[in-house]
Amino acid sequence: MAETAIGVLTPERVFREHAPRVYNLAKRMLGNDADAEDVTQDVLLQVVRKLDTFRGEAALPTWLHRVTVNAALASRRKRARRDEGRVNEPLDGFTDDGHHAGHVRPWPRLPDTLALDREQKQQIEKGIAALPEVYRDVFVLADVEQLPNSEIAEMLDLSVPAVKSRLHRARLLMRDALSRHFEERLP
């Protein structure tokens, strides 16, 4: 077993401490439970079979991100799912002379992420799942996983400007999706 600074990295510890992260990343990228389970299973089995080769636990999260992203992209290619309809274009919401076409309404004061209630978390997950895949991958890696754009570019084989452009578009779509929920909560 691999020795780390804080103990022995066992299959049991990998399962307990890392499986939820792998599963949630895969589920957010793929948008469904069954594919996320397949990816989690593949990734976890790869990891536990290679535990002896790990030199330090610090390397594990980075490696897990990379392997999970690759497995999720491969799963998506295998399904060749191209069933996405037209997406509402956030920059359509402007008049010809560049003004906001409709009312832009404020949201109520929201707590920190950890203090969000179940319904609010579900709305965020729903918004992520509804993003087109090209935007969803970048959004999940940048804004949920908080990886640097350069690392995301390398993982997804994109340029850094392409990552940034997709991220911005994803945030605009997410903002619109969350607005539909949060604006309704205003008195």
């Binding site: 499986a19 939820p20 992260r21 599963y23 949630n24 989690t40 906001h100 009312h103 832009v104 309404r105 404020p106 949201w107 929201l110 920190d112 992420t113 950890l114 969000l116 609010q120 978390k121 965020i124 997950e125 992520i128 959004f139 804004d143 949920v144 908080q146 945030r171 605009l172 997410m174 903002r175 969350l178 607005s179 949060f182």
Partner: peptide, 24 residues
């Protein structure tokens, strides 16, 4: 409208950061 848009864009980023992982 732009000030509100900016604030809600910021909020979108803030509340999505560290979205907790659900258990398996």
């Amino acid at each position: 409208p732009c000030a509100i848009y900016m604030h809600t864009y910021h909020e979108t980023i803030r509340i999505t950061h560290s979205l907790p992982d659900e258990p398996l």
